[in-house]
Write a protein that binds this DNA or RNA. Structure first.
Lengths: 139, 139, 139, 139
DNA sequence: GTGGTCTAGACCACG
DNA sequence: GTGGTCTAGACCACG
């Protein structure tokens, strides 16, 4: 598991780890039930404190993305966390509205925004497929 | 200029002000060249610390959204902030990727995500038209 | 806010703080919008590390019980967190089943268990009323 | 003896074993004097570490639920563990209070809580009867 | 002055 | 060896 952390970013390191693990899970690069590197490994490889790595895993567990078992390690959860549908929709619409404002401020026409989303989804699905193929081959 | 601030939000108040001013500019409710209320006015009306309002304007100026002229006030910039196109695209793609990961984590199919974006854009444009009509009438 | 912490307990200190704050909120001794003592105050009065107190508040925020605002303090949330009803029911039934087994193992007949629950609810409501009266008087 | 263990649960496996054995005893599926499977059998059937199974039995013996006789095996205790009545009541009231706070935090009215407990007790007793009938038949 | 992040380092619980 | 808790102490962001 390769993490790309920027200590100079305003985003806290532990949240950078959270975001990247979520992305790997969304891509299928990390699959349900799969074991993540240990807290100590993440800390050593990414040169952060063990507590910082542990905190990222703790947040991921709070979000239902992973499950930690003492003495065993940390694993990708088997099923997506359940969420109140209204809360889910609210969260998503909020994210969409922020995106729209961001695009307008950058001078991107909204029609183009839709096209770009379609394109990024395409890129995402392609990468997910690649990850998936890589996984199959390892079997 | 009406701001809807939520002191209970995890987003810092000065950033909420920044986001909302950007939104008003994006909507056309604040037009290029238009004068913004003074820092004191914002602070008084929104009941925030004067430093908080000042900080928000500082950030907006740094982003090229507004321009302060000593002794005259703060004005919406005449032209959209010129951003290195590569930087602009990078920022937008980053935002899109975060959105995609969020949607996947929430269990929202990516096809639905596209539809929802289209719907939110529709809502945004409707509101922008209303704001615009209001402006015309004031002339 | 008085906390009764036992460092010798198998329950981690930060979780003891979490449980007690939740109890005070449930009782109405801490009301929506009310400000909690600062992290530093809790740490000093309870003689725990500042990080430990901060962690408790962080967990409470994750549970939607309180809201923290940098520079302002920590406040009881205005409304109860929304939860998927199925998840809510599942959590409650699990708690009830554990209670039943515990009672049987202790040799408590299940009919008595019901009576005891009724009695504890009575005691809880009485204490809640007292807290409420105390609050009114302070106004 | 069939155990339903969830390695993904935050509850340690040895405690899951403890809880389930207690549950089986409470249900009457395991009767006073009855012999439990050996530590090795439990470990093999449930695919847990032998130390884990041994630890669970150790805890059960400490609680007075089972009794180990060297060279003979482990047996369900003849009589319910004698607990200082004050300690028993304290333990039960603590559990009830935690339940009440949890219900309040979830927004469950306390009157409903009483009804739900009655319902779960009904379900528990029905299952206990079934277990009991099964035992009779085996004789 | 408030909460948030991070490090260094210790000790503990579980398997 | 794994994750979890806690302390001590530093520095930062927000208001």
């Amino acid at each position: 598991m390769k993490l790309d952390l920027d200590p100079a970013s305003p985003v806290p390191i532990y949240l950078q780890i959270v975001e990247q693990v979520r992305r790997l899970v969304a891509l299928g690069a990390l699959r349900p039930g799969e074991r993540l590197p240990t807290v100590r490994e993440v800390a050593a490889r990414s040169r952060v404190n063990r507590n910082t790595a542990a905190r990222a895993y703790e947040v991921l567990e709070g979000q239902g993305i992973v499950r930690s078992r003492v003495g065993q390690g940390t694993f990708v959860s088997e099923d997506a966390p359940r969420l109140d549908p209204a809360a889910r929709d609210g969260a998503l619409d909020g994210a969409l509205d922020r995106l729209i404002v961001e695009a307008r401020s950058l001078g991107v026409p909204l029609a183009e925004l839709e096209k770009r989303l379609a394109r990024r989804i395409g890129a995402f699905e392609k990468e997910a497929k690649k990850e998936s193929a890589g996984k199959e081959q390892k079997r």
